[in-house]
């Protein structure tokens, strides 16, 4: 579930889909602001820290030659006449400085950037990551999450908003992308950006239009038609739904919507099977 624009209903769709889909895994890759747990209320069974490699200096071995600073593409090391400054938050953990230091004055240490929590809600396996406050880099935590789920059970992935590296890390190698949008000029603009990303990554996609009102979906549906993107379902704009959402309650508590999300799950499977066939052809 991805969107480009924030607040269109990614988490709502992902959570409600998980709740009607039977035995599935729900993975919240919006590690900057994870919200799925507020609606699924999982029992957390275990957790572990995620670290990335950062350099540590042995000052006695260092002759301040400056090579480490020169080879760092991320400006994470500054070398002065008498001292070396390492900025761990800027470090991407590539190891270039450590590898290329002629005096082997740098060694590797691990810095924690966040935590992964595993849990469950009935048959649903739950997984999310929480980025530490002040940490800029979400992708290493997202990559760690994606290494942690089972290949055998369907996975519903809740993506972060936007179209840059955290979204790429989330979307990559997925089988199908559901783009959740809303019928406003913002929704359409950001849907176009998200579609450009799925095209760039060669991923099949379909669209859920959330918060629809009479007559205002035309431009979104027209765009979907032009792009040959299926509109999977439309969810209504309804103040009663907004109130339920505000309390952390789920759509599918209303049987009418439970049916709608079951249909969505079927449609995604069907679309995926068809696109998978097309790919084979």
């Amino acid at each position: 579930m991805a969107s480009g624009k924030g607040g269109t209903g990614k988490t709502t769709v992902a959570v409600n889909l998980a709740l009607v889909a039977g035995k599935v895994q729900y993975v919240d890759c919006d590690v900057e602001e994870p919200n799925g747990h507020l609606f699924l209320k999982p029992k957390i069974d275990s957790s572990y820290d995620i670290g990335i490699a950062v350099p540590v200096l042995d000052d006695e071995l260092c002759n301040k030659c400056g090579i480490c600073s020169k080879v760092c593409e991320f400006n994470a090391i500054a070398v002065f006449a008498k001292s070396v400054l390492i900025y761990p938050e800027l470090c991407h953990g590539c190891g270039a400085c450590i590898h290329l230091c002629p005096r082997r004055a740098l060694r590797e240490s691990t810095r924690c950037i966040g935590v992964v929590e595993r849990g469950h809600i009935g048959d649903i396996a739950f997984l999310h990551g929480i980025l530490k406050i002040g940490e800029p880099l979400a992708p290493p935590l997202i990559r760690a999450l994606k290494k942690d789920f089972s290949e055998k059970i369907p996975v519903i992935i809740d993506a972060p908003p936007g179209t840059s590296c955290p979204v790429v890390a989330t979307m990559r190698n997925s089988d199908y992308v559901v783009l959740v949008t809303e019928p406003t000029p913002f929704g359409l603009n950001d849907l176009k950006l998200a579609v450009a990303l799925t095209e760039e990554l060669s991923l099949p996609a379909g669209v859920v239009i959330n918060k629809t009102r009479n007559g205002d979906n035309d431009s979104i549906e027209q765009f979907c038609e032009e792009k040959n993107l299926p509109v999977l379902i439309k969810l209504p704009f309804d103040r009663a739904i907004a109130t339920l959402y505000s309390q952390g309650k789920n759509f599918i508590e209303n049987p009418k919507y439970a049916q709608l999300f079951k249909e969505l799950f079927k449609k995604i499977r069907k679309e995926y099977d068809e696109t998978a066939c097309n790919h084979k052809r």
Binding site: E33, N35, G248
Partner: peptide, 21 residues
Amino acid sequence: TEPTVAGIHDMKRILEVTAHF
């Protein structure tokens, strides 16, 4: 922010970030 559980949760996290900086 908005008075939803997600809005409040995320507001509290962003306030930690602004305090940090």
